[in-house]
Design a protein around this nucleic acid. Structure first.
Lengths: 152, 152
DNA sequence: ACAACCTTGTTAGATAGCAAACAATATGTC
DNA sequence: GACATATTGTTTGCTATCTAACAAGGTTGT
């Protein structure tokens, strides 16, 4: 993805997908670093602050990451005292996540990250953006189909 | 990037850029895992096998990663005995990287990864792909400009 | 010559991602 | 009821990435 021995045609699209993702994430991290948060931690707080308490199980689907990854992100938030993990009354396996008071206070202090999207895509042709999104979505779905044992 | 509370327009493009990158990387990792390599390690071997010995310094530029990241990737390859790090005769700071015999043998055994690109983008409209690449490149360059202290 | 600066590489500590294996808990089926 | 299976979360160990701080080696300016 990130080599430069294939910089044209189809090759460069994968390269730019990677670089675009990493550059956007780096800007997010710069904005969040003063608050001691990472990007995925931010998404978790966002969800809890705007949609209320949520099962940990559901975050894997929502954020499209593995259970193991969620475990680690949540553990970091719990260690910082921003999120509580409450075992469900009827199914002890599941854990409900909820903002703590400290988490709610921190959430209010966080900057608006919309400027990143504006910086990246503001002013570009809407149809070009939609074409790009469609191409990447198609490619992603094909790759994911192949990942999920769709192969001989 | 990976939330699902902003799934349309400009928002979804960043989401799909991330997912496309990660899905492609996951397929690469599946193909390389039997050989005990990671994706960036593969790119380093590719360069050394096809372009010959290369200064470690230059890899940061070629692969667009930080010196610190290269240090870690190279250290892994050296530990596996696939790459040698040779201090330059005239400038002791710089290190030349070279495939070992074992590295050259392993390289020949590695599978061709072109199928991933074909799986992702094969058959899609060439102009759509170029539009997508142009949009992502523009966005990336804007983000990188802002990252490099181009801000008020 | 010497001090100030620049370049290169490494280390430490952090986030984020995965797979594989494990533990605990539900939910089947017989 | 008991054993097999599925779900949920954690742990371990790996890759990849970053920043920040450091060490060591060149370069430059006076």
């Amino acid at each position: 993805m990130a080599n430069n021995f294939d910089e044209d045609g189809v090759g460069s699209l994968s390269v730019w997908a990677k670089r675009c993702y990493l550059a956007g994430r780096a800007l997010m991290e710069d904005a969040l670093r003063p608050h001691g948060l990472g990007t995925t931690q931010y998404y978790v707080l966002h969800r809890l602050a705007t949609a209320g308490p949520t099962m940990q199980r559901d975050f894997a689907r929502l954020l499209q990451v593995e259970r193991a990854t969620m475990s680690i992100v949540i553990a970091a938030l719990v260690k910082k005292g921003l999120v509580e993990q409450i075992p469900d009354a009827v199914d002890q396996r599941q854990k409900l996540l909820r903002l703590t008071a400290a988490g709610a206070i921190l959430w209010k202090e966080l900057p608006d990250l919309g400027f990143i999207r504006d910086a990246a895509f503001g002013g570009l042709s809407e149809t070009d953006i939609q074409t790009a999104a469609r191409v990447l979505r198609t490619a992603t779905e094909r790759l994911q189909r192949r990942l999920k044992g769709d192969m001989p």
